[in-house]
Amino acid sequence: MIPMLKRIFRTGILTEPLPEGAATPAAELDRLQDEIVRILGRALTIREVDAGSCNGCELEIHALNNPYYNLEGRGIKFVASPRHADMLLVTGPVTKNMENALRIAYDCTPDPKLVVAVGDCGCGCGVAGELSGPNYASCGAIENVVPVDVRVPGCPPTPLALLQGILAAVRR
């Protein structure tokens, strides 16, 4: 136990200021948390759906929970069921074999809901988007299957880009 506590103490708090926006990161953070509370009355909950990605996007979505980005500390958390979610964070391209499952997850998410399309494949743009367009096994971009509010391109998008995308969706 003591080595663990020592390590926690020595590691300290690594969380970095939020990107872009207001001059002082602290003010920005307060504003964001106020906004989330004003709109939702509680934490923002996200259900991640991999509808056919190469798992590159998932690696970066995982990174959002590391202590540098500290997503949960900012009042945003991932949940296990779409029924508990305010937002679907979807990676693609949407395979035909996942088309139905994605529609069901979308229908299960209570209104008002937000959908963020993640990655070049999910947004149908860039090099990867070109490589993963519709074919016999794929519906292509996420917007071809469910309505999309915000797009976060990148192959894969960096954790910062993902954070900005999630914030952009909340501010809509």
């Binding site: 391209p93 074999n97 016999y136």
Partner: peptide, 11 residues
Amino acid sequence: LGYQHKGVERR
């Protein structure tokens, strides 16, 4: 499995 099948070999 097969849910991630997106036709890579064909591409």
